[in-house]
C-alpha cells in the first residue's frame, strides 16, 4: 500500500511538472515577437582581420558569413512577399495568425524604374537596408575566402537587381575577377552591368570577348558578341581581339570556341 502511494505521488508530481512546463512555454510563446530592425550595422572587423583571426579555418568562417548574408537577405527581401510573413510577425496571437493565413497576400507589381542614375537612387531607397549590410558582409566574406564564387555573383547580380547599387556590384565582381581570372562568370556579368547600368557598349563587348576565352563559357555568349559587335559597328575590333586571344590560348576547347566565333564574325563582316 505504501509503495503504491509512493508511485501515485510520483506520477502526480510528474504530471504537475509537465503541466507547469507546458503552461510557462505557452505564456513565453505568446509574448514572443520577431523583430525586423530597419538597419543592422555590421559589427565585425575588416576582412583582413577576420582572415587573420580565422587561423586556418577560413572556409568555415566564410560559410558562417555566407549563411548570415543569406538569412538577412531572406528576411528582408523574400519574407515580405511570403504569405507566412504576417503569420510569423503575429505568431502567438491566434486570431491574427489565422486571419493572416486566410487572407491571401496582395500581389505586388515589380517596380519599373526609369533607366540610369535616377533608377539607382529609387532602388536604393527601397532596398530594405540590403545595401548597407550585404555589401560590407560580402566584402568581408570574399576577403576571407576569395575563391568562393557564388557570393560575388549574389552581390554583383542578385542584390544589384534589387538595389541598383551598381558601383558596389562592380567593385565586388572586379575583386572576384582578380582572384579568379579563369572563371567566365566575372567578365560576363561585368559586361552585363556595363551594358545595362552604364550603357557602355564598347566596354561590354570587351568583357564579353574576355568571357568567351574562358573554359566552360556558356554557348549563348558568342551569339551575344556577334550581334553586339554588329550593332555598335566594332566587328573589326572583335576580330583583332579574338585573333590575339587565339595566339595566347593553348586549351583546345577554348581554341575551338574562339575559332568558331571568329568564323561567325568574319561571315557577318563579308
Amino acid at each position: 500500500m505504501k509503495a503504491f502511494l509512493k508511485k501515485a505521488v510520483f506520477v502526480v508530481v510528474l504530471c504537475c511538472l509537465g503541466f507547469l512546463i507546458h503552461r510557462t512555454q505557452w505564456v513565453l510563446d505568446k509574448s514572443k515577437r520577431i523583430h525586423f530592425v530597419d538597419t543592422t550595422p555590421v559589427f565585425l572587423p575588416r576582412g583582413e582581420v577576420l582572415k587573420w583571426m580565422s587561423m586556418g579555418y577560413r572556409g568555415i568562417v566564410a560559410d558562417w558569413l555566407w549563411i548570415r548574408c543569406v538569412l538577412y537577405y531572406g528576411r528582408r527581401a523574400i519574407d515580405e512577399d511570403n504569405p507566412y510573413y504576417i503569420y510569423m510577425l503575429e505568431k502567438g496571437n491566434p486570431e491574427k495568425e489565422f486571419e493572416a493565413i486566410r487572407t491571401p497576400p496582395e500581389s505586388k507589381e515589380t517596380p519599373s524604374y526609369p533607366r540610369g542614375d535616377f533608377r539607382s537612387a529609387l532602388a536604393r531607397r527601397s532596398s530594405l537596408g540590403l545595401v548597407d549590410y550585404i555589401y560590407p558582409m560580402l566584402d568581408r566574406l570574399t576577403t576571407v575566402d576569395p575563391h568562393f564564387v557564388f557570393p560575388y555573383i549574389f552581390g554583383g547580380v542578385y542584390i544589384l537587381i534589387g538595389t541598383g547599387e551598381k558601383e558596389d556590384a562592380m567593385d565586388l565582381l572586379k575583386k572576384g575577377y582578380v582572384a579568379n581570372p579563369s572563371r567566365w562568370e566575372f567578365p560576363l556579368y561585368l559586361g552585363w552591368i556595363e551594358w545595362w547600368f552604364f550603357e557602355n557598349k564598347e566596354k561590354t563587348q570587351e568583357y564579353m570577348l574576355q568571357a568567351v576565352s574562358k573554359k566552360d563559357c556558356p554557348t549563348y555568349v558568342p551569339g551575344l558578341i556577334v550581334s553586339l559587335s554588329r550593332n555598335i559597328g566594332r566587328t573589326e575590333f572583335a576580330k583583332l581581339y579574338l585573333e590575339g586571344m587565339l595566339k595566347s590560348t593553348e586549351n583546345p576547347e577554348v581554341r575551338k570556341q574562339i575559332e568558331e566565333l571568329l568564323a561567325r564574325i568574319s561571315e557577318e563582316g563579308s
Binding site: 568555415i60 543569406v70 557564388f150 549574389f154
Partner: peptide
Amino acid sequence: DWSLGHQVKVIKDFGLS
C-alpha cells in the same frame, strides 16, 4: 541547408574543420 545551394561546401568545410 541554409546556405542557398552550397550544402556540399558547408558539409565539407564543417567536417574538415
